[in-house]
Structures are given as structure tokens and as C-alpha cells.
Design a binder for these strands. Structure first.
Ligand SMILES: [Mn+2]
Ligand SMILES: [Mn+2]
Ligand SMILES: [Mn+2]
Ligand SMILES: [Mn+2]
Lengths: 216, 216
DNA sequence: TATATTTTTTAGACTTGCCTAAAAATACAA
DNA sequence: TTGTATTTTTAGGCAAGTCTAAAAAATATA
């Protein structure tokens, strides 16, 4: 149906659009670790196929058709990640690269059966919502720990950084999905956040507080 | 590691080598539905990478390295087929094309865990043996029904033709893996074979008898 | 507003994998 | 063994996707 490169571009544009309606050539280049000139080439192709709205120098946005493709790729990515963790016992920091390949397996029948086999999970191992077979899902309504007030708290429900290094760090601190935390204090000197979890105090840096999301 | 095209060529050469040591350019072209000139191009690349033994006009054979790659692809193909049938409830005639894509998922850790998850199956849905994680397996020692004598028989254990059409036909006649059959009579006029199975008589054509394999 | 900087696009080139057409090598047959 | 048919390779070209370098457009700054 679509090439691997096209699918990767559409997914990248989709994710960038969550931050701002209009996406720039350089943003796409950065997110795909490619060059702006390569992006321009691909944008012309995607526009020809009516998958994006594109006018020279004006940035791009997905059309309804393009968004549908992107959401389907994301559905596949997250379902495969769930499979790898729940059925094959991989850790949450090990699955992203494999899912990056598996999301391009074309059969929708296959992914729908996989969905059923796993009993229709709604969140992937990183807390991200899994679109259903019609592409419906609600975006996470989460806040970074850095954005909430002292003495408030919630349930750890997602991450903003999906890197292995970050996920492994969280694992070691036991700051995993589902844990209940409270912001006890914020050190004004360097913005270190002191959390209370299971009656222990945990110190996390500003960076970590920015990338760890809680449900409100 | 290797490109998708390279992997497909190596697998094709491997399968052709089961028939004869040396494989010709035209055989490869036919089996991949491509042109002889394209094959020649790829043979040079594979020879450069020491995956095949190749001298111009002399045909090719896999090196030990090439065979290892090919067997690994086949292992992945058959394990994914098993997964699709046993876990996702696809029928044996539906899984080949999906497995054709999935066999290129690169992670060996993934396939080894999948193998364990399914409790190390030894045969795929079509009766073909599944290589273990070291690439060891014994080739099927099966005979086409057309090659056995009247009043002998055995257990249906494999197919030579993997096409959807053939598999669906077998399904309809209930000529599936594991069934016990006896060759009752061979009509000399057109080589129709009359089988006895579950106390019923089943008439199959010469073509079918050639493509349906039994354990001896 | 004019100039400098940044962003984006164009121009031209490379690799992979494929094609057609023609040439070369091999195999077959009289 | 010599001519013909078949097989295989070479030559040249194309599409996808990438790159570098240079030009053009947009944006920021003085
Ligand atoms: Mn991921
Ligand atoms: Mn994820
Ligand atoms: Mn198959
Ligand atoms: Mn099979």
C-alpha cells in the first residue's frame, strides 16, 4: 500500500502535529534523522498522494487520509509493543526498536486478531493509548510531574522520553506505570523534586520530572 | 544486517538447492518472478559478501554463511506461520503471505522468545520442519502419494504445493495433516488415485497425488 | 527599511534493485 | 563438428530514497 519510508514520514508528522498544527521541514528532518532536502522530496510525493497538505515554504499538515494511515501505524506499533512485553516477557525498555519494524507488517486482519488475542488492551507498556480498529482513541490527558504543585500527586501513567536509558533509570527507581506518587518538595536551588512513594522519599532531577507523566 | 532483497534471494537459492546442488540464474529468476539480468546483478553482490559461490555462467551454491542466513529466514517464516495458526486462529491457507513479510523482522531474540512462547514447535502448519535456534532440523522424509504402491499408505504429513487454492481444496476434502490414508486403487486411464480414509473413498487427481506428502 | 541569518527548496549525484535490449557463452543437434 | 537454440551476462536506463552544495524565500535584526 504505502512504502516504509512514506509510513515513517506520516507517523513523524502525526507526532509533531500533537505539539502544533503546522509542521516544518526541519522538524521532520530532525525527528527522522535525515536532511531537510530529503524531506522536501518526500513532501512532494506525499502531497501528490493527497496524504498531506503542503505548499512550498509553508510547512505541512496531514489530510484525513494521511492521519488515518499514521494512526494505523501507531496502533500497530503499540499493539506489538504490548505483545512483546505481555506475551514474550520483554522489558518496557527493550521493545521500541522491534516494534519500529513490526509496525510495517501490512495485514490489518493480522493486527485485529492480535488485538483480540490480547483482549483489546487500551494502553501500551509506556502508558500510551492504543487506537481501536477504527482508529478511535483518546489522547492521554497527562501532566509532567514538573508541572504540578507541591503536595499534589497522582498515578504514574506515561513517559515523554521513550529512550532505553530513561526507562531503565525509572525501572531502577521503581518509578513504573501505576505507582502512586506525591510531590513533597521542590528544591529551589536546582529544581530537584522530592517525591513520596510507598512511604519512601525519592529525589528526581528536573529533567526526569519533565519526562515522567502522571494522571490527574 | 542483510537487505530484504538479499534475504529473499538466499532463501530462494536454498530451496532450489534442495532439488540440486547447483542452481541456475533462470531458476532463481523464475522462483522470484524477476528477470535473469536482475538475478545476475544480485549474484555479484551476494558473491562479494561471501554468501554464495558464484562463477560466471556456472550457476551458484550457498556458502556456509549464506546457508545460515537462509535457514534463519526459514525458521522465522515457519514460526510466524505457526503463531498465526495456533495463536491467532488463521487457517493454513491464509498465513503464507503474512509470514513472507514477518520473516524479515530482524531480532533473533524476538524469534527465540516466540519459539519458547509456543513451546518449541517442530513443524509448521504445512508439515514443514522448524529449525531450532542453532539452525538444526531434519528435512522431511516424505513421499508424494503418487509415489507409493497400491495397498500401502501412511499419515498425511506435508504438502509440496503451498498455494491457497491447493490448501483450500485439501481442507474441503478433509485431507489434512495427521490423517491416515491408504492407496486403494490407481485408475490406469488417467492416474486418478482412489484413497481410503476414515472408511470413505476419496478420488484425487494425479496432480493432487503428486503434491500431497505422506510419512512412510 | 535594509541587511543578515535561518529555513526551505532546487540542482545534481549516488546506491539499491529492478527493467529491456543486445552481446557473449554454453548446450544441443544435425 | 558446425550451426542453432538457449542461457547468461553486459550495457544502459529508470524509480525510490538519500546526500551535498548552492540558490531562493522567509524571518530576524539593526
Ligand atoms: Mn515505541
Ligand atoms: Mn510505546
Ligand atoms: Mn509459507
Ligand atoms: Mn509453511
Amino acid at each position: 500500500m504505502h512504502t516504509l519510508a512514506e509510513e515513517n514520514y506520516l507517523k513523524a508528522i502525526y507526532k509533531l502535529q500533537l505539539q502544533a498544527e503546522n509542521v516544518s521541514t526541519n522538524q521532520i528532518a530532525a525527528s527522522l534523522a535525515t536532511k531537510a532536502s530529503s524531506v522536501t522530496d518526500m513532501l512532494r510525493k506525499l502531497a501528490d498522494k493527497l496524504l498531506i497538505n503542503y505548499t512550498r515554504y509553508q510547512g505541512v499538515s496531514l489530510t484525513a487520509a494521511g492521519e488515518k494511515v499514521a494512526v494505523n501505524i501507531i496502533r500497530k506499533h503499540r499493539l506489538w509493543e504490548y505483545f512483546l512485553v505481555e506475551k514474550l516477557n520483554f522489558k518496557w525498555d527493550e521493545v521500541h526498536d522491534m516494534a519500529e519494524e513490526m509496525e510495517h507488517i501490512s495485514s490489518n486482519e493480522l493486527i485485529d486478531r492480535l488485538d483480540k488475542f490480547m483482549d483489546f488492551p487500551t494502553r501500551d507498556p509506556h502508558g500510551d493509548p492504543i487506537p481501536d480498529c477504527d482508529g478511535n482513541f483518546k489522547q492521554n490527558d497527562l501532566k509532567p510531574i514538573a508541572a504540578i504543585a507541591v503536595n499534589s500527586g497522582g498515578i504514574i501513567s506515561g513517559v515523554r522520553d521513550h529512550s532505553s536509558a530513561f526507562l531503565q533509570y525509572l525501572e531502577k527507581q521503581q518509578l513504573t506505570i501505576g505507582k502512586k506518587i506525591l510531590v513533597k518538595e521542590i528544591i529551589t536551588y536546582d529544581n530537584t523534586v522530592i517525591l513520596k512513594m510507598d512511604n519512601n522519599d525519592i529525589h528526581i532531577s528536573r529533567d526526569v520530572a519533565n519526562n515522567l507523566l502522571i494522571a490527574i
